[in-house]
Every structure is written in structure tokens, then in C-alpha cells.
């Protein structure tokens, strides 16, 4: 990738390589033999209907849920052995449960920065700048637990950027974020990709994915049913939404409800 600024990770390896990954909850496979490769420098959209296994996959990639079986390699390091090396290089926009509700936005970003060994003074300065950028500086002493959904996503995004990671793992980053905030987030992510970073995100907003991502995978019932480049997927007349509905939403029409 021209202009790449990152080093340290095993170059030439894909950003994410997952092989035969499975996660079983109470006898039911949430993720079922998933095999996936995310090239470096790509903007990868991971789509699927509710309950398809997207969040479970992301949780396994983050090292929060151990897989039942299968292998995960991120930036050339295998999980769980290379977990620390991987964590140093990734930025997370997790689901809301990973935020510390009793910290303010500034405190949270500063804390995250220091966890990535950024000196305190720099961490504080970056926290201030990021809060300003994401228009959260007016929240002042408000705690994250008192934030709205959109504010929580914005603070998570700001914290993900604070150490300039090589790979971003994002679970519904635009959920609840207003148009201005979403635009800012998209621009920032595109800029990061231009500089060689990789973005792996889940989203239900297909228009956003269609505009941002250069590669897409669709998961349903724990299995990948479509994986291709956006260019190849859109070579026909179908939009991404048409493709998505076709592959996962067959037979769901309101015709069956004659009273409606």
C-alpha cells in the first residue's frame, strides 16, 4: 500500500485470516466454520442480518470470546499466542458494554491512550483534541454512562483512533450517530485506509458500506454466503441492498398478511 506508515507487524500477511472458525452457544453454532481473509489496506464490510454472527465474530477477533474451534491470525500474529502483539496494533469500536460508564469522555480516551503506552501528557492532549473533533468537548463532566447512544459511539471511535492503529475492528460504528458525526467518522476512516490502515466493520446501513467498503462479506446463520470485492458485486444492475435481501431475506413479504 503506497504511503503506508505502519511497521512492526508481519508484512505481506493479510490483516485478518480466519480459518474454520466456530463458536457454539448452548448447542447452537453462532459462527459455523467461518473462513475469511481481509487484505491489508482494505475497507472491509462485514454484513449480515440480526443474529447472523457478526458481533460474535468481532468478539472472537478482539480476543473477548475464545472460539470453540478454528484459527485466527491478525496482522501475521496468531491468536491466542500473539494476543499482546495484536492488541497493540488494533483499534476497537466495540459494542457499548466495553466502555467504562463511570469515566468522563476525556478520562476514557486518556485512559485508553495510556493503555497503549502513550505518555500521559500526550494522552491528555490527544484526548482533548479528539473530544473537540468529535464535538464531545461540550459534554464536560458528563459521564459516559449518561451519554446517548450516538455519543457513546463517538467516544469509542475517538478512543480507537488515539494510538493510530494498523487495524480497526468496528461493531456498528455509525449506529445512533448523527449525519455530521457519521460523515466525520467516515472521512477519518477513509483517511486512515489511505495511509495504509485496514478497517473491518459491521453495519446495517448498506448505503454506507456500499460507499466506503472495497470488499464485502455477508454472513447468515454463522456462515459466509457472499464474499467479494464491491466492484465485482456491483458489476450487475443490483445494488448492495438488492444483493443482501436476495441472499438473506428471501420470502419475507407482507403479502401473507391479507389484513395489512
Amino acid at each position: 500500500m503506497p504511503g503506508a506508515v505502519y511497521n512492526g507487524s508481519v508484512s505481506g500477511e493479510p490483516a485478518i485470516a480466519v480459518s474454520q472458525l466456530s463458536k457454539v452457544y448452548g448447542g447452537k453454532a453462532a459462527v459455523d466454520g467461518l473462513t475469511l481473509t481481509v487484505p491489508r489496506g482494505s475497507f472491509f464490510g462485514f454484513l449480515g442480518p440480526n443474529g447472523a454472527g457478526k458481533t460474535t465474530t468481532i468478539r472472537m477477533l478482539m480476543g473477548l470470546a475464545p472460539p470453540t474451534s478454528g484459527e485466527i491470525s491478525i496482522l501475521g500474529f496468531s491468536l491466542p499466542d500473539g494476543a499482546i502483539e495484536i492488541k497493540k496494533r488494533i483499534g476497537l469500536v466495540p459494542d457499548e458494554s466495553l466502555l467504562f460508564d463511570h469515566l468522563t469522555g476525556a478520562e476514557y480516551i486518556e485512559f485508553v491512550a495510556r493503555m497503549y503506552s502513550i505518555p500521559r501528557a500526550t494522552a491528555r492532549e490527544r484526548a482533548r483534541e479528539l473530544l473537540e473533533l468529535f464535538q464531545l468537548d461540550s459534554a464536560g463532566r458528563k459521564l459516559i454512562g449518561e451519554y446517548s447512544k450516538g455519543m457513546r459511539k463517538r467516544v469509542a471511535m475517538a478512543a480507537a483512533l488515539v494510538h493510530r492503529p494498523e487495524l480497526y475492528l468496528m461493531d456498528e460504528p455509525f449506529e445512533g450517530v448523527d449525519a455530521v458525526g457519521a460523515r466525520l467518522m467516515k472521512d477519518l476512516l477513509l483517511e486512515q485506509v489511505r495511509h495504509g490502515a485496514t478497517v473491518f466493520l459491521t453495519s446495517h446501513v448498506l448505503e454506507v458500506v456500499e460507499r466506503l467498503c472495497d470488499r464485502v462479506a455477508i454472513i447468515n446463520e454463522g456462515r459466509i454466503i457472499v464474499e467479494d470485492s464491491m466492484t465485482a458485486l456491483r458489476s450487475g444492475a443490483e445494488t448492495l441492498e438488492d444483493i443482501f435481501v436476495r441472499v438473506v431475506g428471501v420470502g419475507r413479504t407482507a403479502d401473507a398478511l391479507d389484513w395489512l
Binding site: 463511570h102 468522563t104 485512559f111 495510556r114 493503555m115
Partner: peptide, 20 residues
């Protein structure tokens, strides 16, 4: 540095726990 950051975050959480 990480240890200090975690202890600091715990301290801030405790302080913030009370009405402010």
C-alpha cells in the same frame, strides 16, 4: 504506565461514582 493508568481510572471511577 499501564498499571498507573488502570489505578488512575479506578480512582476516577470511584470519585465519579458520587454525585458531581
Amino acid at each position: 504506565g499501564q498499571v498507573r493508568a488502570i489505578v488512575w481510572a479506578q480512582w476516577r471511577s470511584l470519585v465519579n461514582y458520587f454525585p458531581h
